[in-house]
Write a protein that binds this DNA or RNA. Structure first.
Lengths: 236, 236
DNA sequence: CCGCTTCTTTGCGTTCGCTCAACGAGCCGG
DNA sequence: CCGGCTCGTTGAGCGAACGCAAAGAAGCGG
């Protein structure tokens, strides 16, 4: 990651984020003034699993993949960070280190604060505390959703759900469908759904033959979201 | 659940909880004064999935199981609530309803606050906000751990992990082992690990034959935690 | 333009864990 | 004390998904 540069971050970029809702404009200005802007080139990391947590971040532009590696070397993708998301606030979880690795899927820009700012920032911005609580709460909700899926659904449904979520969170209209707007491999999707790239490849091939999606090297376009949704949720 | 009774809750019961660490004693006293104490008999619920979230709670005594039911009727156990745990703070997650059902595994006592207190309580107790953030953070960490396990480990390892966690969180020394201190069925364990009661039963039978655990109707005692840990983590 | 690397596809055999089924055992209420 | 309910055990068969293997694309760098 490129060294921090104290750049004035345009408040208008962030004032509408849920995280900063109902905050005093002056407080927000003060907060952003303490942040450093960093550029992260595709493939580079913002922080790595196990490293001491020295800063927390807000993604301003781009897309990150956060992965964890198990003791026996298997990789799991915990989440995709989208613009406007807070990430790497390990200290808020009372952890001394980062639990995962954040790697830029495309060239990205992040705002970073020294971790030591966290407590004072939260204590002097009670509104931010409540919003941060909601943000983590939503994260928890997502994790529970994935747990529920992993516990009860077969692989095809899980992959369908994952693809639909990606299309919703990171979709860009393109021709006849919704293209996932950053490079993503079958391996990535496998790591998000707890399966193997082989199974994902087979499923996507099958769907492509039926005209539900269009694949390609590191890319994926959803053509028939309705049909996918029916695979993800046969009942509703 | 028995109707709330405004009972003075002994501060000494809660002052040492991580959630209330570094809080002013007066603030804590004020906070607890607003709480109502409820008794919940075994098998009764504190709240049910989908019900409007009108209150948030702290478990003072006993043990709760929090489950979610999927649209197609499958049940998943999201967590066990232990004494000292905050639960049911759906509003903090910006949710209008409870995402799961909290049912008493044994006769329990909970402290409850009207949900409308949440924002004011957090805003006037910044220290509590930080602690609550950490509490949810740990919850998120646990969820991620389970996701990692579900993604990469076979059933036997997952069940071993779950049993060890239960023994640690809710174990009581008894004779030659550590007895899990509340009634738990094979079905429960299956719902915690994403498998079926049949598989759990087979595994526990196998372990019992090897002298690692002792089973029984709604009970489970860990005899050889070391051997179980080796099943859970063959490497380390 | 060529060679290498990374990503993807596809076939085949295997297996883990599920489903179905039946029975056994503990506990409670009448 | 007996009947019924819930919980637990165990067997047999099956199938979804994995592991292994090999060969094709697509992109990148020299």
């Amino acid at each position: 990651m490129v060294k921090a540069r104290k750049v004035a971050i345009d408040i208008s970029l962030v004032r509408n984020l849920p995280l900063f809702r109902d905050m005093q404009p002056e407080a927000l200005t003060r907060l952003m003034a303490r942040a450093g802007a960093h550029r992260v080139a595709q493939g580079e990391t913002v922080f790595e699993q196990g490293a001491q947590a020295t800063a927390f971040y807000l993604l301003l532009h781009g897309r990150l993949k956060v992965t964890q590696v198990t003791p026996d070397g298997q990789q799991v993708m915990m989440r995709v960070v989208h613009p406007g998301d807070l990430f790497g606030f390990a200290r808020a979880l009372a952890r001394p280190d980062y639990p995962g690795t954040a790697r830029a899927a495309v060239d990205s820009i992040v705002a970073g604060w020294p971790m030591s700012d966290w407590d004072t920032v939260v204590e002097s911005n009670p509104r931010l505390a409540i919003n941060a609580l909601q943000t983590i709460g939503q994260r928890l909700d997502e994790a529970h959703t994935r747990l529920r899926e992993m516990s009860t659904q077969e692989v095809e449904r899980r992959v369908a759900h994952a693809v639909l979520r990606l299309a919703e969170k990171a979709g860009r209209i393109e021709g006849g469908g919704t293209r996932i707007d950053f490079p993503i491999t079958r391996q990535d999707i496998a790591e998000m759904t707890g399966t193997t790239l082989h199974t994902v490849s087979r499923l996507l091939s099958g769907w492509e033959a039926r005209g539900l999606v269009e694949g390609g090297r590191q890319k994926l376009t959803v053509i028939d979201a309705g049909a996918l949704a029916r695979i993800a949720d046969p009942a509703g």
